[in-house]
Design a protein around this nucleic acid. Sequence first.
DNA 1: ATGGCCATCGCGGATGGA
Length: 267
Amino acid sequence: MKIATWNINSLTVRLPQVLDWLAANPVDVLALQELKLTDDKFAHAAFKNAGYESVCFGQKTYNGVALISKSPAQQVVRNIPGFDDDLARVISGTFPLEPASGAAADTDQTMRVVGAYFPNGQAPGSDKFEYKLAWLQGLRAWLRTELVSHPKLVLLGDYNITFDDADVWDPEGMRDQIHCTDEERYELNALIALGLTDAHRLFPQASKSYSWWDYRDFGFRRNHGMRIDHILVSQALKPQVSACRIDKTPRSNERPSDHAPVVLELS
DNA sequence: ATGGCCATCGCGGATGGA
C-alpha cells in the first residue's frame, strides 16, 4: 500500500493536477496541505468521482489540510488536542492496514495517519518563529500519547524544517536561516526521539533530493531546493516500509505547486 | 542587490510563503 503527502499551495488552483496525479499514482492515503480554502469549497465530489473519500480541515486564505483515501478515515481529529491553535494545520485519521506477512492474527491492523502543515516561522526571532517552536512542542506532547494508543503511526506533511545540510541546496547561504536553525532541528530530532524514523533515509536516494524549489530564479531547473516535506514512521510500522520516493514529475507542470509529492510504500 | 515568483484578496498593492 501507498501513503503520500503533497503541499499543493491552493486546492482551487491545483485540483486538476491533484486528480491527474492520483489517476497516474493511485494511493491509499494522500495528505494535502495548504488548501487555502474554507470547508464549504472543498471538492469532495470530484474526489468521490475519482474513487476517493475525503475529509478536510480548511480556513479562508491560508493553511488548510485534508486526507484523501480509498477507505474512509475513522476517528478523525482536527488540529492538536491540548494545543490551542486558530490555524488549520493538522488532520488525523485511522485507516485499515494490510497486515505484514507472518503477522499474528491479533496484530493491530490499523494505522494512524497524521497529516500536518507545520508553521513556516518566517524568520528566527520573530513572533511567528516563537509560535513555530511552541507548535512543535505541542505536537510532540500530543504525539507521545498518540503513539501509545496507535503504535502504528505515520506523521507526514510539510514540516518546514530540514534535518541537516544534505537537505539544503545552499547550506552556507541558509546557515541559521528559517528551516535550518538549530532550534527547529532540535524539535525535529525530538520528534525522532519519540520513536519515529525518517523514511526517506531508510533507502538509497539520489544526492541533492529536495521536495521544494523556489518559484524564483529557475529554482527547479537549477535544483535550488530544500527537503522540507517528510514522512516519519513509528517503530511498529517501520518493518513494513519498503520504499520512499519524491515524485518530481508534477513540479514540471504548468502552474505547479512549489512542493513535490512524497510517497511511502508499505509491504 | 534592498530582488527575482506565486496565491490571496480584490482591483492596488500588501501579506505570507519558504
